[in-house]
Design a protein around this nucleic acid. Structure first.
Lengths: 232, 232
DNA sequence: AGTGTTCTAAATCTTTAGATTGATAAATTC
DNA sequence: GAATTTATCAATCTAAAGATTTAGAACACT
């Protein structure tokens, strides 16, 4: 199935020396991979990555010395295009979720058959992101659960719907940290008009001041939450 | 492989009558499923679900009349324990992400082999969440991309680290919409002390007023964002 | 033509917010 | 033990925010 290509260069990080040796032998048997280096230390591993620039990193995330997830995060920040597959002893949903969130391209259990690891490496080497089916199911349970609260919020009456489009504009500028003067100059209207709008917004959102209005807006899905940056 | 059990009751919603008929015949061939009802209308479908209480719903999400995703959301709100599999013509990452986010237990392309649909139904019927491997990869690309911004933010210097623990307490109360008086009474200190703290917070966060301070806090991971609710 | 909504604006007034300076006591650090 | 940091509080002052009322112009609805 797999074609002949340049061998993918693999780096192994695992504090368990025995497991490390086993995985190395396993991969060495595969014609399409070569192990460029191995280490039992996450910190050393990061330096080896800078040196060898491997295609794939197999990272044990259950290490006492340094948290493997933290190591993944640091490697991702380097932006070297290294594809990391997390190796773990646990099929814990939270661990899987966090690993994928910070950019791991795969997550394989140590207890899984070696063929599973090779398959994951094949997929990741070809640019895909791969999770074994059983872990995918776990991931999605966690994922969907984390959105349940949001869904419940959205069922409540959203007072934001009562705002006029002009009031929305004003509120948008409020959520960027503007004062009356700033809003007035940005909308080319007088400061007193802004005050009128803001007071109407307070009435409609049933709040007492601008901070509460901004919090209500952010908590109830006003615009894109990530767009609400400070305009200083 | 599959054991003999009570047949899973399936309801089909698809505005394409031809496709609807085809899927119905396909499922009827399977000994472990029975189609309890079908409809070409999402709105009718929601009522049929209330009436028949199926185990599984196959929902076409590419419908002109009513958005299938919206329909899924409404069904999920009913909390009937109905497991929904989204059927779509498109392997669009955003569509997949949104469907899974709102609680779909699976997502299958109409172009996929019928065996794929049956397999997805088997998995979902047994309580799992199932996405075909190819779609899982798409999903994760989208998923990881949506976290990239957050990762970049966290690399910037976080001015919140300069706050003392007392200042953090005060800021926490600010992010709940309290004024000076409210903070003073909650911390059992005088209003002037609160003013001092707040002014120090402004200095450290390099902002001009409380709204900007609150926005800075929320945008830079102060506490749990979801905990920042209004205390009115 | 009339009703209602929205956007605009001003005037006035009260309250809150924010800046600044100075001071004390306790805890921490060096 | 001196210096620094932290938490507390007061007084004062200016600026900003917020409440309230009134009102004209534009527009939509019917």
């Amino acid at each position: 199935m797999r074609e002949f290509k340049r061998k993918s260069r693999v780096l192994l990080i695992d504090d368990n020396a025995d497991h490390l040796r086993g995985v190395k032998e396993l991969i060495t048997l595969e014609s399409s991979y070569e192990v460029v280096s191995t280490t039992t230390s996450a910190n050393v591993g990061i330096n080896l990555i800078k040196k060898y620039r491997p295609d794939i990193v197999l990272m044990d995330i259950n290490m006492p010395e340094k948290d493997g997830l933290q190591a993944i995060q640091e490697i991702e920040k380097l932006n070297l295009g290294v594809r990391i597959i997390a190796l773990s002893a646990y099929d814990d949903a939270d661990l899987i979720f966090r690993a994928m969130k910070i950019g791991a391209k795969g997550y394989v259990l140590k207890t899984m058959a070696s063929a599973q690891l090779i398959y994951a490496m094949d997929e990741v080497a070809s640019g895909k992101i791969y999770l074994p089916t059983a872990l995918t199911s776990r991931f999605f349970e966690y994922f969907q659960n984390s959105f349940k609260n949001e869904a419940e919020i959205s069922t409540e009456e959203n007072l934001l719907t009562y705002l006029t489009s002009r009031e929305e504009e004003v509120l948008d500028l409020l959520t960027q940290g503007n004062n009356y003067k700033g809003i007035a100059s940005k909308l080319f209207i007088s400061e007193t008009t802004v005050k009128t709008h803001v007071n109407n917004i307070f009435q409609k959102l049933q709040v007492n001041d601008r901070t509460q209005a901004v919090l209500y807006a952010l908590n109830n899905g006003f615009a894109n939450r990530r767009r609400a940056k400070l305009a200083l």
